[in-house]
Structure formats: C-alpha cells, structure tokens
C-alpha cells in the first residue's frame, strides 16, 4: 500500500510547484549538511519558526497589517484619481490635449525617483508613503481607463447616441462598462504596483510600521531569518491581493466572465 501511495501523492503535486520545492530541498540540504556555514545562512525551519516563536519575528503580522492598510488607503486614492482623470482624458479632446501629455511624461519617471522629492514635500512620515502608493496606482489605472474609453466599440457608441442617453447614464451604462475589460487589466497592474510601491516607500523611508521597514531593520540587524520571513510574506501578499481583485471583479461584473 505504502509503495503505491507515495507516487500517488507525488502525482497530486502541481507541476508549477516542482521548481520551488526543488529549491527548498537544495536550501535545506545546504543548511543541514553544513556546506554553507555562515551566520547569514539560515535553515528553512528557522525561517518557518521565526514569525511565530521569535519576539522580533512576531512583529511581521503587525507590519503586514500596516502595509495592507496603506495599500488600501493609498491605492483607493490612486484608483479613484486614475479613473476620473482617465475618463476625462478619454472623453474630452480638450483634456486629452491639455492634460494627458503631462501625465504621460510624468509616467516616464521611475516611480522610486519621486521618493526624495516626496520626503522633502510631505516629510518622513505616513503622508509620503500614502502619496507614493497613490502615485504608483494612479498611472496604470489612468492609462487603462483613458485607452479603454477611447477604444469603446463605435457601433455601441452609436446606439448610445441614438438612445439619447443623459450624460450620467451614458457614463455609467455605456462608457465605463465598455472600457471595463481594459480597465481591469490596468487595475491588476495597479494592485501589484500599489503593493510594491508601499513596501518600497516603507523600505526607503525606513521608519514606522510596515513590511518594508520591517525588512529594512532586520537587514540592519543582520537577521537574515527575519528578512526572509518578510520576503515570503511579501510574495504571499502579492498573490493574495491579485486573487482578491479577480474575485472582486467576478462578483461585481458577472457579465464579463466567459
């Protein structure tokens, strides 16, 4: 029986998990055999223990909560601004000629280059982190909304015109839903950049609670185990955010799924 069940369990392992499992095995082997003996080289088991047993490691949960709040707060601001400005530039020729070039140029600046400016303007606290998160969310949402609204199907636009829809209804019942597939792509990118942006800002500024500053201070104390915990939580957070957004879209817009 036992001989049969082992391959059976192996068969249930998803193909995509083989590479990470292999790396994990190599890591455990290297740590266990003492090949890589260095205070900076920790074993997988230690990393697993830290967030639950280590008093410094336990702070990862509070840090995670703080980062999530920042993503939600800053991200919502950025999404809202991106939607509004994107719609404006998609619908109005004046806005698209007047405002869009500025935004498109500002987008070319690597987002992290804004951090020195923001800390000068908004200080070394919460405000800078939120503004930075909002900014990194804003660009993808703005771009996608603008493009989505501009590329709404002409045939359906004619229907909206012949039905003489009032402006508000035209926006809610036609332009937004028609642009939704494009907006959704931008939104997915935005969620990821909100996450990366928040952690990046926390890491660069280094103070306060948050996953970024958690990793930064662990690095400063040469606590490799805590750094790794932070990195794994970071990855898990990104995956969870991505899934949550897809679920949200599926619930809000049932007609969009196949």
């Amino acid at each position: 029986m036992a001989e049969v069940s082992v391959p059976r369990i192996l068969a249930t392992v998803p193909k995509g998990a083989w590479v990470p499992l292999g790396l994990l095995a190599a890591w455990a082997l290297a740590a266990g055999s003492g090949v890589a003996a260095s205070p900076l080289f920790v074993s997988p088991l230690e990393v697993l223990r830290v967030p639950f047993a280590d008093p410094d490691g336990q702070e990862v949960w509070a840090a995670l909560g703080a980062s999530i709040l920042r993503v939600v707060g800053g991200g919502l601001t950025g999404v809202l601004l991106g939607l509004v400005l994107g719609m404006l530039c998609g619908l109005s020729r004046v806005a698209s000629l007047g405002v869009a070039p500025t935004i498109h140029t500002a987008r070319q600046i690597a987002v992290f280059a804004w951090i020195p400016l923001f800390t000068a303007w908004f200080g070394n606290g919460e405000a800078t982190k939120l503004v930075f998160t909002a900014l990194s969310t804003f660009f993808p949402v703005f771009l996608a909304t603008e493009r989505g609204i501009r590329s709404t199907p002409k045939a359906l636009e004619e229907v909206a015109r012949t039905l003489d829809l009032p402006f508000g209804k035209r926006l809610l019942r036609f332009y937004l839903p028609a642009a939704l597939p494009t907006i959704q792509v931008g939104f997915r990118i935005a969620v990821l950049s909100a996450w990366i942006g928040t952690i990046g800002a926390e890491y660069a500024i280094g103070n306060g609670r948050g996953l970024g500053s958690f990793i930064a201070s662990a690095r400063d104390q040469f606590r490799m185990d805590i750094v790794l915990v932070g990195v794994f939580v970071l990855a898990a957070g990104g995956v969870i955010f991505n899934h949550a957004c897809e679920r949200l879209f599926a619930i809000l817009f049932p007609w969009a799924k196949e």
């Binding site: 359906l156 829809l165 019942r173």
Partner: peptide, 16 residues
C-alpha cells in the same frame, strides 16, 4: 450592450 440584461437594454431607451 453585453453588460446589460434584455430588460436593461430595453430600459436604456427609456432613460431619456
């Protein structure tokens, strides 16, 4: 409009 039901599509013509 693919995002509206039959009733929604028909009702659209009454919005004005």
């Amino acid at each position: 409009f693919p995002w509206l039901t039959v009733a929604g599509n028909v009702g659209l013509a009454l919005e004005a």
